[in-house]
Every structure is written in structure tokens, then in C-alpha cells.
Design a protein around this nucleic acid. Sequence first.
DNA 1: TTGCGTTATATAAATTTTAATATATCGCTT
DNA 2: AAGCGATATATTAAAATTTATATAACGCAA
Lengths: 114, 114
Amino acid sequence: MNDSKFNLDGRIWIETAGEKILGHGRVELLERIKESGSIRQAALQMKMSYKQAWDLINHMNTHFTSPVVISHRGGKGGGNAVVTDYGLKVISQFHSFQVKLKAFLAENSSEINL
Amino acid sequence: MNDSKFNLDGRIWIETAGEKILGHGRVELLERIKESGSIRQAALQMKMSYKQAWDLINHMNTHFTSPVVISHRGGKGGGNAVVTDYGLKVISQFHSFQVKLKAFLAENSSEINL
DNA sequence: TTGCGTTATATAAATTTTAATATATCGCTT
DNA sequence: AAGCGATATATTAAAATTTATATAACGCAA
């Protein structure tokens, strides 16, 4: 254990061909789309522009093996967006890595001696 | 083992009071100052401006328990900069965390199934 | 068939970051 | 004491990023 005023923090992400394809923020975006059924609402909740959210989703959809979000325009409510089963799998795997990272950081934080 | 086209990557850093104080880039900067004895040369090698390098060093010097770099102006060669013993300790501890992170990422990369 | 709310996309404006430039200080060297 | 090369610091310019705005497409509902 350790009462140092310093602590270790970190981030992980998934890459393909050296390019970041999924991190922290994108996962939260997917989760909010899953809850709200709307790209717009998810973007508002996260205080990002619709464009920014759309770009992130488009990037994921074109780089993962299958799309993570399917969207429709027009119709009841004006349109909607749905996280695919594949998208749910992506979220779930990222979460399990996050849990492990958290443990890693806690362990090592206590090793800091500066 | 895993031949997925996806891989896990990540970064770690040391914080104090929620503020990032040491990461990847700063460690490299310290190492290059240690080698060259010059902030300017270290900055040139890393293709950053002198100001940027100086700001980073100043931030570390004022946030760590002790300074990590001592610099002198004037004199032989125009001036110089030296990494302190404390600075060397900082580098060394960060490296040991980096090694562990690398192992963590390799282990978990092979778990990706997308 | 008009209106509504959302997706989709482009363009322009604003902001923030980053980089470049300039100037002063310092102490050894010649 | 004048010059050199590096540190130190402020100011300006440029670049990159972010945000805002505008427009069109879409399909259901009233």
C-alpha cells in the first residue's frame, strides 16, 4: 500500500492496422445510442456535435468487421439508430478489458515511490 | 493466441492531484536531455520547439517532489541541463510500469474476438 | 400533402493548440 | 570586452481542431 501523492492512470483502445478504432468515448457513445435510440440524443448527452458523433460511428461502421450501429431516417419520430448485436459484443469485450486495466492501475499505483 | 486483425493498445501516465505529470513523451525528453546535456538538443531531436520542451520540464520540476532537471545558462558551451538523481529515479520507475503494460497489452490483445 | 424530427452532409466561423519569431540573460572563452 | 551558444520568456503567426450553421433527404403522422 502507498500514500504517495502520485498515482498511475491509463487508457486502452482497440486498433486495426495501427489506427485507433474504439476507445473510451466511442463506447460511451454506443451505450447512449443503445439507450436513447438516437444519434442526436446521444451526442447531446455527451455534449458533442451531431457531426462529431456521426463521424465516429461512420468510422467504426466502416472499420469493424460488421457495422456497430444501423440508422434510419424518416418515419416515426423522424428516424432512429440501433446498436447491432455485433456492436453489443464490441461494447462487452471492451468493458472486460477496462475492468482488467483498472486492476492493473490500482496494483501498480501502490508501487509508486517518488 | 489470436490472428484477429484487431489489437489492444494503451498508454499509462503518472498523475498528481488529477493532473498528468509524466508520460511517454516526457520520459523520452528526460532521456535525451540526459544523453545530450541540453534542452535545446533534446527538443531538436524530438522535433518539438524549445519552448514546448522547456514548458514540460518546468511543469515537472514544479509538480514533482524535487526537480527532475537542473539547467544553467551561460558558461562553457553557452549553458547546459542535467537530469537529477531524482529524475533518474522517475525515469526508472516509469520504465518498469511500461514493461508491465506491454505484457498486459500482449496478453489481452490475444483475447480479442471481433 | 404538409409538417415534424431525425439522419446525412457540406461549408463557414470560431476557438484552441501549436509553432515560429524575437529579445534578453548568463558566464565561459578568446 | 566582445562573441558564442544555450537558457529563459514573451509575443506573434500559423495551423489544426472544434463548433456552429445551413441544407437536403427521408418516411410516418395528422
